[in-house]
């Protein structure tokens, strides 16, 4: 049924979550529990790779907001990379680029972590 998946990958100092498919009200809890799992394990530098993300709804956007305060309070961050233009449009409309680092590639996101740059 669900055409959504999250894959974990440890890379350098960050954990990369590769998301695929459609992130909507039904699949949002999957990503949410994935992020929660990372936070619980102390992995607070997260990169969400949206290369395979075809669609995101407002409920999907909410997932990024759910833990961001907690993560940032621990000096971590969620960075988003490799979004398809259409999906980026949704993030952009809501003003996400003002709050989150949304970059082209995983490498860029990693280097932002390495440089310790926080948005805002």
């Amino acid at each position: 049924m669900s055409n959504f998946s999250v894959a974990f990958r440890e890379f350098d100092i960050a954990t990369i979550l590769t998301v695929r498919g459609e992130l909507d009200a039904h699949t949002a809890p999957e990503l949410e529990s994935a992020i929660k799992k990372c936070v619980d394990e102390g992995k607070i530098r997260l990169i969400v790779n949206g290369n395979g993300l075809d669609y995101i709804s407002s409920a999907g956007l909410g997932v990024f907001m759910a833990y961001i305060e907690e993560i940032r309070a621990l000096d971590g961050d969620i960075k988003i990379c490799a979004l398809k233009p259409k999906v980026f449009g949704v993030f952009d409309l809501l003003g996400f680029p003002r709050i989150y680092h949304i970059v082209e590639t995983e490498e860029e996101a990693l280097s932002l972590f390495n440089q310790g740059i926080q948005p805002v």
């Binding site: 907001m65 809501l94 003003g95 996400f96 003002r98 709050i99 805002v120």
Partner: peptide, 17 residues
């Protein structure tokens, strides 16, 4: 025009943007 969603930022950023 520029503008953040309500609830995304609870500080001054919202008004600044």
């Amino acid at each position: 025009s520029e503008g953040l969603g309500i609830g995304l930022d609870r500080g001054e950023l919202f008004e600044n943007v």
